[in-house]
Design a protein around this nucleic acid. Structure first.
Lengths: 145, 145
DNA sequence: CTACTTGCAAATGCTTTGCAGGAGA
DNA sequence: TCTCCTGCAAAGCATTTGCAAGTAG
């Protein structure tokens, strides 16, 4: 599976005339391993000597290429995860206490409702909705302990 | 309606031992007038001479008191709106191009689905969901023009 | 070789904070 | 009068950028 991701990442980077360097590959590996949106700090923890500016820059490039996606939670830190085309459509559980974010896949019935809502909004307003973002806010097990 | 909001705001501030000063009242008025989440910059535009630090501080106080809520969009600016207890439960249309946010009320059928999902998540995971946040992402009329 | 990448360091810009004067209760 | 609030200025901190050296192709 990881190999597939790397193959897609390499292809998408090439499409925007960027290289799939070891540093960028390591970032993608870290995101695969995490399996949830992680902060820049968490990504850098694996390589403390590496300057964060490079991480920021590479995540920016990967985002442009459509390999990763920026996720906003409730705290002041940006989080990143693999793009949905690579992981499948999903939503997030956001801890309002510590800011941690986990993935979560809602029943397909709900997804159909959401899609229907998008269509109806398109009819009722002059806003053109392309996608949706659904987060459940609450407290994670760690913060409740 | 504005008077009701002010009454509630005053009560909530008193509960946390804070005063409902003219500056804070003006903020609440601006939020009522806006009718959508607005940035600090937009709030300050009405009083250019006022230091933004005061705006930040007062919004912080109002947030603690449960009068306003912080809304995160896709850009780097924080936005604020009146708390849902004052405006009613709703969701947001977020423009991915300019970052503007508008309110939107989904059909009650969808809300029931969302509530059901929250309940099922509570059963399936060790995350305790309290509320949800649904944003439709797309482009606003202005950006499409 | 040529262009993209990286590391380092400095800058940027939103947001927060310290402090002294001013206003509410 | 005592506490909270405001204005001003300076500091914080995540994020961005300039520049020179390194490296992929």
């Amino acid at each position: 599976m990881a190999e597939d991701v790397h193959a897609v990442a390499a292809r998408r980077l090439r499409r925007v005339e960027q290289r799939y360097t070891p540093g960028r590959r390591a970032l993608v590996d870290a995101l695969i391993a995490a399996g949830r949106p992680v902060t820049i700090g968490e990504l850098g923890a694996a390589r403390p000597h590496l300057p964060q500016s490079t991480t920021y820059r590479n995540l920016g490039v990967l985002e442009q290429a459509g390999v990763v996606r920026r996720v906003v939670g409730t705290d002041e830190f940006s989080r990143y995860e693999l793009a949905e085309e690579l992981t499948g459509h999903h939503h997030h559980l956001v801890c309002v206490s510590c800011g941690a974010v986990e993935d979560f896949e809602p029943p397909s019935r709900l997804e159909r409702s959401l899609d229907a809502v998008i269509d109806s909004v398109a009819e009722d307003t002059d806003f053109r909705a392309e996608s949706h973002r659904l987060d459940l806010l609450g407290t994670c097990a760690t913060c409740r302990a």
